[in-house]
């Protein structure tokens, strides 16, 4: 027996609500990551405005911002990859 056995069969009749809820999760997570990145940008601005270790803030912010961008990209790659594969199979 293959380990793929017992895995779900393709359902053609998943409601539109399911896709809408999935879209809500994707948008929610994107907004969260964007908010964190905006927050980091805001802190850089504050450090520049107050002349408060601007260079240090930039270096920390570059690392932190990149991490969130990478996580966000990975998430999008995964969910859209899975959804697109299912849709192509249904088509």
């Amino acid at each position: 027996m293959n380990f793929m056995e017992n895995e779900p069969v393709l359902e053609e009749t998943e409601s539109h609500w399911v896709f809408k809820a999935q879209l809500l999760i994707i948008i929610g997570f994107t907004c969260f990551a964007a908010a964190v990145i905006l927050w980091i940008c805001r802190l850089i601005y504050v450090s520049w405005d107050l002349k408060d270790t601007f260079s240090g803030s930039i270096s920390i912010a570059i690392v932190a911002g990149t991490i969130f961008l990478v996580i966000l990209s990975i998430f999008h790659y995964l969910v859209w990859g899975l959804i697109r594969e299912k849709k192509s199979k249904l088509d």
């Binding site: 793929m4 895995e7 779900p8 393709l10 399911v18 996580i71 899975l82 299912k86 199979k89």
Partner: peptide, 28 residues
């Protein structure tokens, strides 16, 4: 579960995407 499974049907391509992402996340 329908929502959170994100259309998973267990195809070879989906397995490939999943394993690739798990690998990247493990490194990250």
């Amino acid at each position: 579960y329908q929502v959170l499974s994100f259309g998973w049907t267990g195809t070879e391509r989906q397995h490939k995407i999943l394993n690739r992402v798990i690998g990247i996340m493990a490194i990250l």
